[in-house]
Design a protein around this nucleic acid. Structure first.
Lengths: 213, 213
DNA sequence: TATTACTAACTGACTAGTCAGTTAGTAATA
DNA sequence: TATTACTAACTGACTAGTCAGTTAGTAATA
């Protein structure tokens, strides 16, 4: 029985809180099992409702996923945009701060399941891919790209293509997260993720920085 | 009608060539659509046989996938092992050669679909994950790890954990390939993969190399 | 050399199971 | 009492794997 059904009556009408509870249940199962493998019956059960109720609030499974991203991921992007806009300091420090924030909020939490899910299921769900790219990826990318571009302008970083440099900064972090959610559980060879992250960031910034600090 | 059925009879017995033709058809569809989304009916159709014939030569869909990896990927690993063993030159040049080989044979061919598939489907097919890690990943990793370890020993590279350094060398390449096979088709922001690769390799080796060349 | 008996490669229809989405009816609430 | 949030049983489309039956090819025999 769900936590929310404390009365002994069979059910209660809770129009305001149902959508949020369904989104929370969906998030939990989507990040754990992916999009396809998540059963709407299971989402409903975890949210303490029937599958019919899910369809009362969301048009489709894809619509439910979009709502999850909207509620859970987009607010984090907005926070990051604000942090970046207000930041005082070198572009290296700004980018380090953004990477650590991403790592703490997404990389090492259950939210890491979202990038993993998108990579895995994009080919089978093109509309989700487009949605995610527009609302999440391009926005996140722009924050970083700006830091790189400003750093190049001010002479803090060597000249390079900011598009490619942004991707090279993110790639090892995204790959690590995706690996953890896919093959890592079966991998005999273990390694320390924090050491990995540290070595990546230090060599990356060493590689792109000029020496006139 | 399949290329192989030139007679007007309904079918011919071709015990020797069927398995290879089924493997080729399976490879084609697995790399294009992934493991789950590939229908055995489609594989059979592409190979010019019925689904029953697929089961005559392979025990299951997973068994067919293992046969694909065995036939297509393992020989490439063996070649790389030989190339590395015979190599004369700096460890940097060895690793560059291995990375370019990987890029030319896997990264920019249809075989790029295999790492993408494994990342996407590992969670749902643990036995495939274990097989792939043991037969492919760990073997490929060892070739690179050895180059890094030797380079550290000889003073060509700075001291570091070879396990982590190996992963940092591969991660941006694997991520790029996985991105191409997932979200890239829907991504507005384009970039040049060769430029990406070049910037990665040059900054990576700059980052890990000592200056006493 | 022609016929026939036999083997095994191959087919295609079928089964059992899965799951997103639908809907008729019920019970909570205003 | 009227409205509507919610349930639970249902549908229909999909697919891995099975298996009874068919046919190509071959070897033995007339």
């Amino acid at each position: 029985m769900s936590v929310n059904e404390t009365e002994n009556s069979r059910w209660r009408r809770r129009k305001e809180s149902r959508p949020g509870e369904i989104i929370e249940a969906a998030l939990e199962l989507f990040v754990a099992n992916g999009f396809s493998a998540t059963r709407l019956d299971e989402v409903a059960k975890l949210a303490g409702v029937s599958k019919g109720t899910v369809y009362l609030y969301f048009d489709s499974k894809e619509d439910l996923f979009r709502a999850v991203v909207q509620q859970i991921i987009i607010p984090e992007i907005e926070k990051a945009e604000q942090k970046a806009a207000q930041f005082q300091g070198s572009q290296r420090d700004l980018l380090m701060m953004l990477m650590m924030t991403w790592w703490n909020i997404i990389g090492k939490t259950r939210l890491a399941g979202i990038p993993k899910l998108m990579i895995s299921e994009a080919a089978n769900f093109p509309e989700l891919a487009e949605f995610y790219l527009e609302k999440v990826v391009s926005r996140a990318r722009n924050i970083i790209k700006k830091g790189i571009a400003v750093g190049i302008q001010t002479g803090e970083f060597k000249p390079s293509d900011p598009v490619i440099t942004t991707r090279l900064l993110m790639a090892p972090m995204l790959f690590a997260v995706i690996w953890e959610k896919s093959l890592a559980p079966y991998d005999q060879e273990k390694y320390d993720l924090d050491d990995y992250l540290e070595l990546h960031l230090s060599t990356f910034f060493e590689g792109i920085s000029t020496n006139n600090v």
